[in-house]
Design a protein around this nucleic acid. Structure first.
Lengths: 138, 138
DNA sequence: ACCGAGTTTTGGACTTTGTCAAAAAGAATG
DNA sequence: CATTCTTTTTGACAAAGTCCAAAACTCGGT
């Protein structure tokens, strides 16, 4: 995400300091939670309301500018990297999240046949495990 | 789940009316939420506290007797069917959840190489889409 | 069948994550 | 610049779950 301002204009979104800051924060802290991002934005802007962070994140998510991921037992996390069908690796004990490319060749995970009459539009894969740091701790 | 009582004893869990009822409810209402299950158990026992339902569900989940699934934007759901590595198909608009067998042959989804030093123990797949009923509605 | 020790269940307060709504402030167009 | 429409802010609220202490129950031994 090189130019947050341009990105906003491309999507017909009024440019505000809050949006620019949130966008930058998401970009530089992949997989951060709304809370993490609020912290980060406050460091840059001084203040921002909790609600605004949510507003911005929701708008950006709706426009497809960022992606929201919601692993079990964790608040939602946000990321910049979109449209490349990658998946996630989450640590059960600390929540650390990493990106992984689709492990099984050319996105076969998307080829699920339409089961039960559902119209499938996405296959979400989460690999659960323990991160190196947490492996040491125990 | 034919004999909830026997199942409890097998796992060294004291047998209580609440546990039997919750276990039966999970068995007969696959993918139900804690709230749904509370409803169902109240129909059978008359009363049960909200906390007890959570207690029981947590114990059963810890012991591996039932499985908890937590799709985004939905409260946790519980199921009986465990150990067969099946995945889920969730309707984005109504939350209806169906089981699907691993779509790509013999569980290749579990073969993710250990990335980033993580020790991976599970690959969770959720197929997102629209169920037949919700397709008609719009 | 009863007792006692140790678990469960209960009820109520509390926490976390997020949304709703109305008023104040700010961006963009002519 | 002024107007209009959107955003931001503030504060209340909602859903899902957990924490804690007291009361009730289960189970093993007698």
């Amino acid at each position: 995400m090189h130019d947050p301002e341009a990105t906003l204009r491309q999507h017909d979104l009024p440019v505000t300091a809050q949006r620019i800051a949130v966008l930058r924060a998401v970009s530089s802290h992949p997989h951060a939670t709304a809370d993490d991002l609020t912290e980060s934005v406050r460091g840059e802007l001084g203040t921002i309301s909790r609600q605004s962070v949510y507003n911005v994140l929701n708008v950006l998510t709706d426009k497809g500018i960022i992606r929201r991921i919601q692993p079990a037992d964790s608040p939602a996390r946000y990321e910049d990297r979109i449209g490349d069908n990658h998946h996630h690796l989450v640590c059960r004990s600390c929540g650390k999240t990493e990106d992984v490319c689709c492990a099984v060749g050319e996105a076969p995970c998307l080829k699920a046949h339409s089961h039960h009459g559902f119209k499938i539009d996405e296959a979400e894969v989460i690999y659960w495990g323990t991160c190196p740091a947490c492996q040491k701790k125990r």
